[in-house]
Simulated assay, not measured.
Amino acid sequence: MIKIAPPRPEWAPHKAVWIGFPSHPELWELDLEPARDEVTAFARAVHADGKGEQVLLVAADEEAAAAARRRAGDIAKVVIQPFGDIWLRDTGPIIRGDGVAADFQFNGWGGKYDLPGDDDIGARLAEARGQAVETFNWVLEGGAIDGDGEGLVVTTEQCLLNRNRNGSMSRAEIEELLHRDLGFNEVLWLGDGLLNDHTDGHVDNLARFVGTRRLAIPEASENDPNWQVYQRATARALQHGDIEVVPVPSPGRVLRDDEIIPASYMNFYIGNASVVVPLYGTENDAAAVEAIGVLFPGRRTVGLRADHILSGGGSFHCISQQIPG
């Protein structure tokens, strides 16, 4: 078997980044325009006055593209590719260490949201940039995994072992596919993800690598709806061995229409010049920006509100997919 180089870690240099731009009024309703503003602010922070990577705002149609150009000006190139929604971390390609765009099957997070264009947007984006594409016949979303660049990947059982993704495929079978198709040679299995996360527990809302074998996980008090989830994740990571766990704040209980929503500072994006942290107007916002900033010396850490993006189910990491340099 040919040895596959795993994806480079997110803190490695990027050539560019795809960022999904809200395009369908019927999906976003009253959140459409404010979500567009939040996405543009994110793009501006990643661009960082020309110090960051090239920003590619991906719009689904001409109307959305025009709205993106009006807002972004010269900080971004607008790309038109039809898609269902903006969650390019999950539907976009995962660029391996050998430069090949790995394109996996996408089934709307286990059949929850089947939207036209989401199943092949990854291959189309990669092919438009002249990337070699290799397609695989099993379901995997980019937000379900996070790698440290040295062959270690973290994921959750709730997502990757969920029967709504790949049927009765076993843990060993999933590990073999992660090795065969993405080059990961070690898997850290966490348990469940955040409460009410429609992705079935994507790890990029729970735990993120911030260095080789160095994993950031929130910590929280008992009034946080996810405090036990964080505790169990930390215990799993420490039991795995030779992993440093770095505690960061949690936003706590965040509600929309009286329902707990999966707000997480872990959905930050690591750009060439900036680390962009989603904020939700809670008392821990400033502390989260400070704590995450300490982990990335040499980069500016920016906290930006993401309330309206979150209304669609995710945040900055979820709507972006980097193209390694």
Rank of each mutant, 00 (worst) to 15 (best):
Ile4Leu: 11
Ala12Tyr: 13
Ala16Phe: 11
Trp18Cys: 13
Phe21Trp: 10
Phe21Ser: 08
Ser23Thr: 10
His24Tyr: 08
Pro25Val: 02
Glu26Gln: 11
Trp28Lys: 03
Glu29Thr: 08
Glu33Asn: 03
Pro34Phe: 08
Ala35Gln: 05
Ala35His: 03
Arg36Tyr: 01
Asp37His: 06
Glu38Trp: 02
Ala45Cys: 11
His47Val: 02
Gly52Val: 07
Glu53Lys: 09
Val58Trp: 10
Ala60Lys: 03
Glu62Cys: 14
Glu63Cys: 08
Ala67Tyr: 05
Arg69Pro: 04
Asp74Thr: 10
Lys77Gly: 09
Ile80Ala: 01
Phe83Asp: 00
Ile86Tyr: 04
Trp87Tyr: 07
Leu88Ser: 04
Asp90Glu: 04
Thr91Tyr: 04
Gly92Ser: 11
Pro93Tyr: 05
Arg96Met: 11
Gly97Ile: 06
Gly99Cys: 10
Leu115Thr: 00
Pro116His: 09
Gly117Thr: 06
Leu125Glu: 09
Ala126Val: 01
Ala126Asp: 06
Ala126Cys: 02
Arg129Ile: 00
Val133Ala: 08
Glu134Val: 12
Phe136Leu: 06
Leu140Gln: 05
Leu140Thr: 08
Glu141Gln: 02
Gly143Asn: 01
Asp146Phe: 03
Gly147Pro: 14
Gly147Val: 13
Leu152Ile: 02
Val154Phe: 04
Val154His: 08
Gln158Glu: 15
Gln158Leu: 11
Gln158Met: 13
Leu161Val: 12
Asn166Thr: 10
Ser168Trp: 13
Ser168Pro: 06
Met169Asn: 08
Arg171Trp: 09
Glu173Trp: 03
Ile174Lys: 10
Arg180Gln: 15
Asp181Tyr: 03
Asp181Ala: 09
Glu186Tyr: 01
Leu188Gly: 05
Leu188Trp: 05
Leu188Phe: 02
Trp189Phe: 03
Leu195Val: 15
Asn196His: 14
Asp197Ser: 04
Thr199Val: 00
Thr199Cys: 00
His202Ala: 01
Val203Asn: 07
Arg208His: 10
Gly211Gln: 01
Thr212Met: 01
Ile217Glu: 09
Pro218Asp: 04
Ser221Asn: 06
Asn223Pro: 00
Asp224Ile: 01
Asn226Ala: 00
Asn226Leu: 00
Trp227Tyr: 15
Tyr230Pro: 03
Ala235Met: 13
Arg236Thr: 02
Ala237Tyr: 02
Ala237Leu: 01
Ala237Lys: 10
Ala237Cys: 02
His240Asp: 12
Asp242Leu: 03
Asp242His: 05
Asp242Met: 01
Ile243Tyr: 00
Ile243Lys: 02
Val245Ser: 12
Val246Trp: 04
Pro247Phe: 07
Pro247Ile: 04
Pro249Thr: 12
Pro251Gln: 10
Arg253Met: 12
Arg253Val: 00
Val254His: 13
Leu255Phe: 07
Arg256Cys: 00
Arg256Ile: 00
Asp257Met: 01
Asp258Cys: 08
Asp258Ser: 13
Pro262Asp: 03
Pro262Lys: 05
Tyr265Phe: 15
Met266Phe: 00
Phe268Gln: 10
Asn272Ser: 06
Ala273Glu: 15
Ser274Phe: 04
Val275His: 13
Tyr280His: 12
Gly281Asn: 13
Asn284Phe: 07
Asp285Val: 13
Ala288Glu: 12
Ala291Asn: 14
Ile292Cys: 11
Gly293His: 11
Gly293Cys: 09
Val294His: 15
Phe296Gly: 09
Gly298Val: 08
Leu304Arg: 14
Asp307Asn: 15
Asp307Ile: 13
His308Pro: 09
Gly313Pro: 07
Gly314Ile: 00
Cys318Lys: 13
Ser320Asp: 11
Gln321Tyr: 09
Ile323Arg: 09
